[in-house]
């Protein structure tokens, strides 16, 4: 049974249903437990609208959303359960920090789950550790720490709720390269070691190629492709027509192939590209 299933979901945003006011149209997808899904699409393509359906922030105008097999809108009681299962990290989540200390802010979510003081403390410590927030930082005000630290503190607040599904909307936007790398590592660790399902919305093709199992492409509110990384990056023209791009390194190898070099077409990460070129060079030495 898929952990997430959307059946024919359409969302109309201003009450009057016409083609223009449909933010997402007939979206049907399913996600298996433990998968890492990347969502890409130009600004305004419906990515954010789509993910807000996953934890009951938006109610589909038509269609159904199932989390763990449960129709989340069937019963009002499902609301709290769904939000516990699905953790959503908004864009620029640091704007939501509000408590006196970082520690209290991270504890806010678990507290609302009605957990014991002991359990809350345990979870805060674990989440802080996952996002590399030190002890002394926990006692500071969230407003006196750096931008990267704020972002990580905000994400820790969601991780502390131990969601089955972690949904993130451009979690690395606006961070410097080191800060970005840290965030991506945290998400990857949560996926790998905690075995959680991850839905990651991004504009960076380089990042998505490196971490995701599958890529979902949105365009004008519709799912145009939902496939493996390999198959997704095959169709360069389609991607570029939709305001998207392919990783720099993929473009380089694509151009080399056009020049007549015998190079595989499914390379999206630096590591793979280096290995491929290195092997060709070794072969060449032998001849």
């Amino acid at each position: 049974m898929p952990i997430i299933e959307l059946k024919d979901v359409t969302y109309v945003y201003d009450g009057t249903d016409n083609l223009k006011s449909r933010a997402i149209k007939n979206v049907s997808i399913s996600v298996e437990k433990g998968e890492y899904i990347g969502i890409i699409g130009h600004t305004g393509s419906g990515k954010s609208t789509l993910i807000q359906h996953l934890n009951c922030i938006l109610k589909p105008t038509y269609g159904k959303v199932y989390i763990d097999g449960v129709d989340i809108w069937e019963d009002k009681k499902n609301l709290a359960k769904t939000r516990k299962k699905v953790g959503l990290v908004f864009q620029y989540p640091e704007y939501q920090l509000f408590e006196e200390t970082v520690e209290k802010d991270i504890a806010f979510g678990p507290k609302n789950l009605g957990l014991s003081t002991q359990e809350i403390e345990k979870r805060v410590m674990k989440a802080a550790q996952m996002v590399e927030i030190d002890q002394d930082l926990l006692l500071k005000s969230p407003f006196e720490i750096s931008g990267g630290e704020k972002r990580r503190a905000a994400i820790a607040g969601i991780l502390a709720m131990e969601p089955e599904i972690l949904v993130l909307d451009e979690p690395a936007a606006g961070l410097d390269p080191l800060g970005k790398e840290k965030i991506l590592k945290i998400i990857d660790n949560f996926h790998k070691y905690e075995k959680r399902t991850v839905i990651h919305v991004t504009h960076s093709m380089e990042d998505i190629a490196k971490y995701a199992d599958k890529i979902l492409i949105m365009n004008d509110g519709e799912v145009v492709s939902y496939d493996s990384v390999d198959n997704t990056f095959k169709d360069v023209d389609m991607l570029q027509n939709m305001g998207l791009d392919i990783p720099q390194i993929t473009k380089v190898l694509f151009k080399l192939r056009q020049k007549g070099f015998n190079i595989p077409s499914n390379i999206y990460t630096v590591e793979d590209a280096v290995n491929v070129v290195k092997n060709i060079l070794i072969e060449k030495e032998k001849r």
């Binding site: 699409g41 130009h42 600004t43 936007a173 606006g174 504009h203 093709m205 998207l244």
Partner: peptide, 12 residues
């Protein structure tokens, strides 16, 4: 001042 950080690849 980071005017492209919120944009998609084509917008950038």
């Amino acid at each position: 001042d980071e005017s492209t950080s919120m944009l998609d690849p084509i917008g950038r």
